[in-house]
Each structure stands twice: as structure tokens, then as C-alpha cells.
Design a binder for these strands. Sequence first.
DNA 1: ATGACTGTTATAGATATACTAACACAGATT
DNA 2: AATCTGTGTTAGTATATCTATAACAGTCAT
Lengths: 123, 123
Amino acid sequence: MVIEIDFNSDEAIYMQVRNQIIIGIATSRLQEGDVLPSVRQMANQIGINMHTVNKAYSVLRQEGLVTIDRRKGAVVAIDADRLQTLAELKEQLLILLAKSSCKYITREEIHQLIDEIYEEYCL
Amino acid sequence: MVIEIDFNSDEAIYMQVRNQIIIGIATSRLQEGDVLPSVRQMANQIGINMHTVNKAYSVLRQEGLVTIDRRKGAVVAIDADRLQTLAELKEQLLILLAKSSCKYITREEIHQLIDEIYEEYCL
DNA sequence: ATGACTGTTATAGATATACTAACACAGATT
DNA sequence: AATCTGTGTTAGTATATCTATAACAGTCAT
């Protein structure tokens, strides 16, 4: 699980880490039960602070994607809280679609883009 | 253009304002050339600081949705920079779809949800 | 017992958010 | 011409968040 950070991005480092782990899980490079690298190990590997990785793991726990055990570390464990997931998804999609609509991106183009992403990243 | 803020939300106030204006434009309640309320007026109306509204307007300007004139105020003016819009959209959609996929939301459900949003909000 | 490994807590500095107050310019009204 | 009212802008401040360093506490193999 190689993680790359763009230090010039305006997105917080811990969110970049979180995002890439989510993509890792979605693409099955990380699977239910897999243990994530320790916060120190991953922090070292990508040259950031341990606590920043810890924050990323905490967010993932709060989002129901991992559990954190003092002994083992962070373990991939999906809590498929369907209703909440759909509600959040809808809210975020709405903003994305609204902005796209402002820029004259059509509904068909959105559908197409989604299929493109699914295939490009093998979700 | 009535804007409602959830002060308990973890989303920044200026982003909530920005989001609702984007939805307003997407649903044609705000149209090209329309003048947004002055920063003071809107700040007063929703009970927040003028500078917070100013920040929202600044973001909208940077996103190519309004222009800001010292005399007139903020005016809806779409800069349909298609390529950049699509690139940003794809990046953000990827994260959303990946997270959904982790939670066992299918591609079909995504397509369905998008149609639902388009119809519910008349985008 | 010791050493190596976990995550956790305490603390601090930098950055971002939201605010108050004062400013500068444009345009209408006196 | 002077004043008033309307713009956004800038300066400065308090609070929260992000990132970092350092010390802590529990677990487990040696």
C-alpha cells in the first residue's frame, strides 16, 4: 500500500491519506481484516508526522471503515451502515452535481464519467 | 434567495453559503447577470459576519461562478472552463464512489441516486 | 526484566475560520 | 461642492484545526 502525498495541495494531509486508503479498500488492495501499517511506520514511509496518520485512521474509524486496537493497530472492518451512507452520499453528490450543472456539464456526461471512473479504477 | 445555515454542522459557514448559492445557480433561481445581495445585507439576513459572506463570494469567484465589482457587488457570471471542471469533478467523484463502494453501494444505485437528485432538485 | 512494538496523551507552533472595526472608493442626495 | 449611503477591502483579534515533537502507557516476545 504505497501512499503519495501532494504537499502543495490545499487538501489536508490526513485527508489525502484517508482518501487513498479508501481507494485501497474499494479496489480490494486492502481487504476486510487486513492490518494497516502502524502509525509510525506509515508516517516514516511517507515522511510525515505520526499524529497525522493517526488522525487519518481516526477519521476512517469514525466513518466505519476500520477498527483501532491498541495492540494490533488499525484493522480494516467495514460497518455497512447503509442508510447513513446513502444520506451522506446524496448530500455530497448534490453539491457536486449542482456545481457541474452550473458549468454546463450534462446529466449524461455525469453518468458517463461515473462509468469511466468505475472502469479505470476497477471499483 | 433564502439561505439557511446549520451552526451545528462541521462544515464551515462560508462553505454552506457557497453551496447554497451554487444550488441556486444550478436550479436557475439565480441567473447569469443577477446581482447577489451585498455582503452586509446577506450577513445581516442570516445572522453571521460580513466577512464570512465575503469569503463565500471569494470562493465562488475563484471557482468561476461570479465576478466581484467594488461598485456593484457580486454578479453571477459563469466561466465554463470545461476541462478544469471535468478534472476536478472526476477527482472528487472518485473519492465519493470509492467510499460508497466500500459500503457496498453498487454502481447501479449510484446512477439511480443521480437521477433522483436531478429530478428532486430540478437541476 | 528488558526491548521493541503498539496507540495515546500533552504540548506547541502554524494555518484557517469567523469576527469587530476602520478604511477607501463610487454614486446619489442634498 | 459637501454629505450620506452604499459597495468591497484591509487590519487586527480570538478561537479552532492541522501538523509536529516529546513523553507516556499498555502488549508481547525475548
